[in-house]
Simulated assay, not measured.
Amino acid sequence: MKDYLAKALVYSGYIRAYAVNATATIAEAQKRHDTWHSSSAALGRAMIGTMLLSNSGLKGEDERLTVKIQGDGLGGAIIIDGDAKGNVKGYIQNSHVSIPLNGDGKIDVRGVVGTNGVLTVIKDLGLKEPFSGQVPLVSGELGDDFTYYLASSEQIPSAVGLSVLVDKDETIKAAGGFMIQVMPGADEEVISDLETRLANLPRVSDLIDAGKTPEELLEIIFEGQPIMFLEEVPVQFKCDCSKEKFSQALITLGSHELQLMIEEDHGAETVCSFCNNKYYFDEEDLRALQQEIVGGQA
């Protein structure tokens, strides 16, 4: 089944709803970073949350959103970057975290993320200064943390569900999530009905594993209510790194540092944190960068 996000309106437009199947996307991240099951679940949930935020809060082609989760858990920092076109990339500082299941028999994401720390969202909307919002972590399970961010920083009452099912061989069996947002003017009866529905919802990754589409996830949540489906957005792991971008980063080190690399290492290898792609610069490449520095100073 392909990865995509579905957008919809419910309750006469007073509820905005999003659901996503991100199984292949999270599987790609797991392979690239060789994450173990606890890290996979934390990284996957953070990526799914970022996809949902990006596709609800960004409009323009060039707008981007970065989520930084910096807690005191075993996984260290988690950094995710996404856009409104469904592209997402990300990494977790400690990819090899494998801890026992929690008391509910589920992957202990809280142990990976931690409970003391912050969730920061930075939106680059093409303006002079990016918009930045930050909230303390409230649970470390991430769904609650994204929910709290939306309510506190963006004043949008929401419910966010994030779920990753990891197989015994560390591969990703299913991954996805939903985001429900309450628009101004929604009455208390609608909100109460929504809370009851979400309290009885099966785990999202189990529904995806059973073959349910994003539209069917929303139909399960809002059973009996008419749903207006708006659009589908394909989602995928995509990194925009390149050797050219790393060239510019190396230039900022200065000619002296580049000379040391030539003399001591006879080259340089750079690695992208987001996707683990490697770019090698031999002595000739580094000398060419030195010439760019000299040329720029002329």
Rank of each mutant, 00 (worst) to 15 (best):
L194Q: 13
K68T: 13
G13M: 03
V88K: 03
L101P: 14
A19N: 13
A249W: 09
S192R: 15
V135T: 09
G114P: 01
T270A: 15
V166L: 00
K243L: 00
K89Q: 14
L150V: 03
L286W: 08
K31L: 08
V97M: 01
A17L: 10
I69A: 02
R203Q: 15
F222K: 14
G117N: 05
V88L: 07
L165D: 04
L125W: 07
I15Y: 14
G105D: 05
Y91V: 00
V233Q: 13
L65W: 09
V271C: 03
Q297V: 12
R16T: 13
E264G: 02
C272E: 11
G76R: 02
K7F: 04
S152V: 08
G177L: 11
L65A: 13
K31Y: 06
G185M: 11
D81E: 15
A8D: 09
G44P: 02
A22Q: 07
N276Y: 04
V112D: 00
F274H: 03
I92A: 03
V294R: 03
V88H: 04
E269L: 13
T213H: 09
L52H: 07
D34C: 01
G44I: 02
Q30W: 00
I172R: 06
L137H: 06
E264N: 08
G117E: 06
I251T: 15
C275T: 03
V88D: 04
Q290T: 12
P100K: 01
L52A: 06
L58W: 01
D72S: 02
E283C: 07
G126V: 12
E284N: 11
E28R: 09
G57A: 13
E28D: 14
E63S: 00
